[in-house]
Design a protein around this nucleic acid. Structure first.
Length: 371
DNA sequence: ATTGCTGAAGGG
């Protein structure tokens, strides 16, 4: 389907700041007032501050003042693994990122783009990419499932795959992510390898490493659960609200047939994936490896084998999930990590007030344009 | 829309 010039312009704008609808704007502003307002509504106070006087808009107003959990407020049914990782870096920054999408500085975006194309180049070393047009989220998940169905045998026969999709419940929240690389080592162990490209030719500071540990630990946690049959089709459907009876798009069906998979419905496909995951003799991930390379020169800056600490991962996730479920307010960084604010795009709107003893004058406030 | 929805990761 062809797009007109006008439509393309409109969709480009929609990816930026101006994308906020009226209701979303209200929701943002309500962040701090929500609880107070909810209380004041219970008494028949002066209605002059309410917009409109008829029942309908009053009800609307009330609904918006309801204390919604962040999952509800952002209309999320699941989270990305990298959401929790951003949360690990700075929870408030992550929240601002959700509220004001597309506000990265061009400099940062360029570094991310470089990283993304290095990853893409590595992926293309292993396989070709095929574009499959999709129209529904059911189509999107179907393509993900078809990828899994083709990748599992490839891993078992050739010993290496990249960009393996993972999904599953962790501490009450459903997580979706993509494992950078899985391969068997010479010892026959299944190793997860995560490549991190860096702008400067130096190893990351420990805060960055911790975030990367969390990322690959979550991947292992979810992957292991998948191959152990703990991620069931029922759980997947429950969290994603996929419609099994919605017919798959023609391009998806054609792609499936070309890949030798004869399925008619999404339900069929999910059952096949479940069987393939659990009956292909896939082991749990044995080792977690992080590799840091310099973007410009591809110099290896360092390689780390990370120990999987299940209890630590779980308790971290519990803490993060408490925010998403609305059990606690979001937090900014501790004073010791205030250096992170120096490169934060939201530094000039951030309301995180340092606790004891740090004056805002020592913060060299740096005006940054949000775009 | 009196309403709905998601490529994930990309680096600091």
């Amino acid at each position: 389907m062809a797009e007109t010039e006008e439509e393309e312009t409109a969709s480009a704008e929609a990816s930026g700041f101006s994308d906020l609808s009226d209701s979303e704007l209200v929701e943002c502003l309500d962040l701090e007032d929500a609880k107070v307002s909810a209380v004041s509504l219970s008494k028949p106070g002066p209605s002059s501050e309410l917009p409109g006087k008829d029942d309908k808009s009053l009800q609307n107003w009330k609904r918006r003042l309801d204390v919604l959990s962040p999952m509800e407020r952002f209309h999320l049914k699941y989270l990305y693994v990298t959401d929790l990782c951003s949360q690990n870096w700075c929870e408030l920054q992550m929240v601002y990122g959700k509220e004001l999408p597309g506000s990265l500085t061009p400099e940062k975006a360029a570094v991310l783009d470089t990283g993304a194309s290095i990853h893409l180049a590595k992926e293309l070393e292993l396989h070709d990419l095929v574009t499959v047009p999709i129209t529904t989220k059911e189509d999107a998940w179907a393509v993900k499932f078809l990828n899994i169905l083709s990748m599992i045998p490839t891993l078992q026969s050739e010993g290496r795959i990249r960009e393996f999709p993972v999904f599953g419940e962790v501490e009450g929240v459903f997580l979706v992510g993509v494992i950078d690389e899985l391969h068997y080592t010479s010892k026959g162990e299944l190793e997860l390898a995560e490549l991190k490209t860096r702008r400067r030719p130096v190893l990351p500071v420990s805060a960055q490493k911790k975030k990367d540990y969390l990322q690959i630990s979550l991947y292992k946690y979810i992957f292991d659960a998948m191959v152990q049959g703990k991620v069931t089709p029922a759980s997947l459907i429950h969290h994603t609200k996929l419609c099994l009876d919605k017919p798959l798009g023609p391009s998806v069906l054609r792609h499936a047939r070309q890949g030798g998979v004869s399925v008619k419905s999404l339900g069929d496909l999910m059952e096949l994936v479940f069987l393939s995951l659990t009956l292909s003799d896939l082991p749990a991930i044995d080792t977690l490896k992080l590799e840091y390379i310099h973007q410009e020169t591809a110099t290896i800056l360092g390689t780390e084998i990370v120990a999987f600490e299940e209890k630590e991962v779980k308790s971290k996730v519990q803490h993060y999930v408490a925010y998403w479920m609305g059990h606690r307010d979001p937090q900014g960084v501790d004073v010791e990590e205030a250096w992170k604010c120096r490169t934060c795009d939201y530094v000039d709107i951030c309301e995180w007030k340092r606790g004891s003893g740090v004056l805002s004058s020592s913060w060299e406030p740096k005006a940054k344009k949000l775009k």
